[in-house]
């Protein structure tokens, strides 16, 4: 299945944000949620089918214009599943652009790598100088009591024209050493939260296998590894709360 979705948020000129474009197709269906009033807009990915499924080719574009504020969430976890025999890996490509003085908060539910899946997730975000980005990616390696499928996630976050954060994570039988003590140490859940731009909390150890680390450029990465997703949430959720939420 091929699908494309697009969100364009822009300032409404009265201190708020409006959605100029909100377009999706199954399984990338989008709904505006939350109150109409207030400065920020929330969009949920509602999901039109189980998946992604082997062979799916999905693409989402997000654009947040100057001074606009957008939060994207999802109603349920993505469950990456194997497709028909011989199908190519499933793909989800996300491109986002955040303008000056704009804020994008990307806070989806986790991706679950079901046994036998082969999934590639690619993310590329461009943040203009003065823009703010909060980008969360959680991954669960297999459903309850099953081995992990193969997932490769590739993230590039650029800020003010320079690459701030480049990260690839590969789990599953195709990723040598992924469950060893250097990578996940037998942990089944891992989460990352990139905070780019000005005005974030101070770096800190977050308890357990989690830390909020200052990047070399203007931003931070919170990283957490857990036996299951609860430990990752306990470490990262407090950093994702927005004022007023």
């Amino acid at each position: 299945m091929r699908a494309e979705a697009r969100i364009v948020a822009e300032a409404d000129g009265r201190g708020g944000t409006r959605l100029r474009v909100l377009r999706g197709e199954s399984p990338l269906l989008l709904r505006r949620t939350g109150p109409r009033a207030g400065g920020a807009v929330t969009v949920h990915l509602v999901g039109g089918a189980a998946g992604p499924l082997g062979g799916d080719d999905l693409r989402l574009d997000v654009e947040v214009g100057p001074a606009a504020r957008l939060t994207v969430r999802s109603v349920a976890a993505q469950l990456a599943l194997p497709g028909r025999a011989g199908a190519p890996p499933s793909r989800l490509e996300i491109r986002a652009a955040v303008a000056a003085d704009a804020t994008l908060r990307w806070l989806p539910e986790p991706l679950i790598a079901a046994a036998g899946c082969r999934h590639r997730a690619g993310t590329r975000v461009e943040v203009a100088a003065g823009g703010r980005l909060l980008w969360r990616d959680d991954l669960v390696c297999g459903r309850h009591d099953e081995p992990s499928g193969d997932v490769r996630a590739d993230v590039t976050i650029r800020y003010a024209g320079s690459t701030l954060h480049r990260h690839e994570l590969a789990v599953g039988p195709g990723a040598p050493g992924w469950s060893g003590a250097a990578v996940l140490g037998g942990g089944r859940a891992v989460g990352a939260l990139v905070l780019a731009g000005p005005g974030w909390p101070e770096p800190a150890l977050l308890g357990g296998d989690a830390a909020l680390m200052p990047l070399a450029g203007p931003g931070l990465l919170a990283s957490a590894v857990g036996r299951d997703i609860r430990q990752v949430r306990a470490a990262l959720d407090p950093l994702c709360a927005a004022p007023g939420e």
Binding site: P176, G177, G180, A181, A182, G186
Partner: peptide
């Protein structure tokens, strides 16, 4: 990794080294 109790023996070390090789 040793202090965290994740590497105690040669088997654990093998997993550590393999993961480190394919990342760092």
């Amino acid at each position: 990794a040793v202090a965290a109790g994740r590497v105690r023996d040669v088997g654990d070390l093998g997993g550590f080294l393999r993961g480190r090789l394919h990342t760092t």
